[in-house]
Amino acid sequence: MRINKITIAALAVVAGLSLTACQNDDAATGQSDSSTSSSANGGSGSGSSAQNTAKDSAAKDSAGENSGEGQSATGKCRTDELEVTATDSTIEGDPEGSVAVEFTNGGGRDCTISGYAGVDLKTNAGSLSAERTGEQAPSVTLKDGESVAFGITYPVNDSGGSGIRITGLVVTPPDETKSVTLDWPGAASLPVTDGSGSSVQVGPIGSAGQGG
């Protein structure tokens, strides 16, 4: 009887240990599954976050483009974009002759122009550069097709002599190096002077009024 009691007790202990081991295994398996599920969910969440960030960035870029951010400012008018014409603007009775030179924007974009154009008269005695009047020169924005003009004044040859014959007009837009050569529309000649008389002068952009 003593042997049987010992055997039964031993079996009970073994059974208890087996049950505890199974419970521990189940708990470990549950933790592993929970960890795996959490990792999977975390991975999915990270991917979703990255996608949302990319979408937000794209939306900001699109908004920036639509609002005009990053676009360059209006550029300066270039010689090749301008149609240049010259007309006689002398008013009868004025002591000096005058010519209006007009720039018309034909570049297909808005552009700005300011300052003084370079003006040279071609004569039979050589090239004669006009002097600036010294007036303030405002900045003008020309839309495509719009115009702005400046004036040239010069002494009238009323001496009765042939004077200095003018053969052409060379105009260089402000801040440009490329020039345009035009026919001279004013009086045919300048008086011969010893340097003490009035000179050929050029006004700033806008000094002869602005067309449209």
Results as ranks from 00 to 15, higher is better:
E135C: 06
Y116A: 03
V101M: 07
S114V: 07
Y116P: 04
L169E: 10
V192F: 11
D110E: 15
G206H: 03
S199Q: 11
E92K: 06
E176K: 11
C22P: 00
T90V: 02
P155H: 08
G163F: 07
E131V: 09
V200F: 10
A188N: 07
K178V: 14
T104W: 02
G30V: 04
K76L: 12
A40M: 05
A54Y: 02
T29C: 04
V13W: 05
A59N: 12
A9G: 15
T20N: 14
A54C: 00
G151D: 08
K122N: 10
A188T: 08
V192C: 05
E65D: 14
A63G: 08
K55L: 15
V180H: 07
I166R: 03
S72Y: 10
G168C: 01
P204A: 15
N66G: 11
I164G: 07
A187L: 03
K143V: 04
D61A: 14
N24R: 06
L121R: 02
T141E: 15
D33P: 02
V192L: 13
T85F: 00
Q136F: 14
A27Y: 07
A58H: 05
T104P: 01
D26P: 01
Q23M: 13
M1Y: 03
S62M: 09
R109F: 04
P155V: 04
R165I: 10
A187V: 00
S162C: 00
P185F: 01
F150C: 03
A100D: 05
S48I: 01
A10P: 03
L82K: 05
G211R: 09
V170Q: 08
V140H: 13
I166T: 06
G168L: 00
G108I: 12
A188V: 02
V14C: 07
D175Q: 15
A63T: 11
I164S: 05
Q23R: 12
P173Q: 10
S32I: 14
A130R: 00
G106F: 09
S162L: 13
G186E: 06
S189L: 01
T141Y: 02
S39G: 01
T153D: 09
D61M: 05
G47W: 01
F103P: 11
Q201C: 07
V99E: 12
N24Y: 08
G186P: 06
S139P: 01
A130H: 07
V13T: 11
